[in-house]
Design a protein around this nucleic acid. Structure first.
Lengths: 231, 231
DNA sequence: TGCGCACCATGATGTATGTCAAAACGTCGC
DNA sequence: GCGACGTTTTGACATACATCATGGTGCGCA
């Protein structure tokens, strides 16, 4: 998914390296989009600012993730470093011109956005009609899996602050804090300083994950029927 | 965005028409993906079913919208008709093979998914940390705009049930119902039978839209700084 | 045209989580 | 290693919304 996998045509592109200090913005929502970015190291948070000043975090990006992978004149959200970040940047016009010449790469980009879409849907599932414990449990498991897929390591880095998690899950930092304490007391996790935890009991978290509110026995939902064009 | 705009290469594809009755499924989450669909008329709801039986609606599709526009072996959500629906279907393999031969069309597909992604982010904004009135106001304005962009017509079709709106916004049908009544009493809307409303006071709704809960004065958020690779 | 059922509306009540306040803690600079 | 600040934690309280219960209504079908 990184530069290496970008196909031969892209090697010729004018990638520029850029280092961004923690808390600095990479770009702002509404800015004209000049570059497509690829994260090399560090963590980035993407957020939208509403007219009333509210901040909703819509995702976190880390190494090998693309940022602002869209073909649109202006940025639709803001991107801010939450740790020291190293990026590679390529001018948008050049990027898409090259991609258009390489259908295989274009398909790959299509898939990357498709994954982002899937993640966005997942975020909706995580926050809608789920109680706060469920949301946080879901988040912790997801971030652990994303950092080290099918790994059994217990340590998980949490580079973002509690407030960032709250702004991501649609909670308040107080609630996030309280639930960390609850999970700690139940022996699900162990807090290692401010930027990391150890997942001691993943199954405990998984059990919490299924809890929801607002569930109504919705009839006729998933009855297998024939798919495809024939009737 | 429709078949017409699909480019010359796609005219040769074997599109099949299919008519689906209300409440019938087009495909189920987990089914192997065989076709890409293009809605010609009617309304479709897309939803995910969680292990605990909860149903989260992640979107509604209508005329000229693609459904299941992803390059992935199985469907990641279910699609169900909420009215009589006419579809056109094309086998996935054939679809992407043709798209790969037409970079311009591939780029178009990329943009369609990009729009879906934007909508998904918008859904997150709509439901997270917003009170129920804000969510519903947002929803009504969005659906009105989508059905007839920059139009002043007051009538808006609501083909889905109250429960569907609830499952979309992360509320209960009772709450949705109550808020419809509130909006009615305030003179924002007028309910026209079960499947339509008239937007009488859009600005009233817009005012409600900005209300949130859980807002904390998040410092250092959107201070304009320099974007791009240079520093 | 009218019946019946699914959908919708409204009421009473409990609870999760937001809000406000203040103390404790970890981290970063010196 | 020390101090100071921003972050996190904890507590007391308020409230919006889910829940449970019941009655009302539009609409599809005979």
């Amino acid at each position: 998914m990184g530069l290496d996998a970008a196909g031969e045509h892209l090697g010729a592109l004018t990638w520029t390296s850029r280092k961004v200090a923690s808390r600095q913005h990479i770009f702002h929502q509404g800015d004209p989009q000049r570059y497509v970015y690829l994260v090399k190291s560090g963590f980035v948070r993407l957020y939208t600012l509403l007219s009333n000043g509210r901040c909703q975090i819509i995702g976190f990006k880390s190494a090998d993730d693309y940022v602002a992978l869209q073909y649109y004149p202006e940025h639709r959200f803001s991107a801010q470093a939450i740790s020291t970040v190293e990026l590679q940047c390529v001018p948008v016009a050049e990027f898409y011109a090259a991609a258009s010449r390489d259908p295989q790469f274009m398909l790959k980009l299509f898939n990357v956005v498709g994954e982002d879409l899937f993640r966005a849907h997942d975020l909706v599932l995580t926050i809608a009609k789920r109680d706060a414990e469920g949301s946080l449990a879901s988040f912790l498991l997801a971030i652990a899996d994303r950092a080290a897929p099918n790994s059994k390591t217990e340590f998980v880095a949490l580079p973002m602050r509690r407030g960032d998690i709250a702004d991501y899950l649609g909670l308040t930092n107080e609630t996030v804090s309280r639930i960390f304490t609850i999970f700690k007391k139940r022996g699900f996790i162990e807090v290692r300083g401010r930027h990391g935890i150890r997942l001691i009991n993943r199954n405990g978290l998984r059990a919490v994950t299924d809890r929801t509110v607002g569930l109504r026995k919705n009839s006729e939902l998933d009855r297998p029927e024939l798919a495809g064009p024939a009737v």
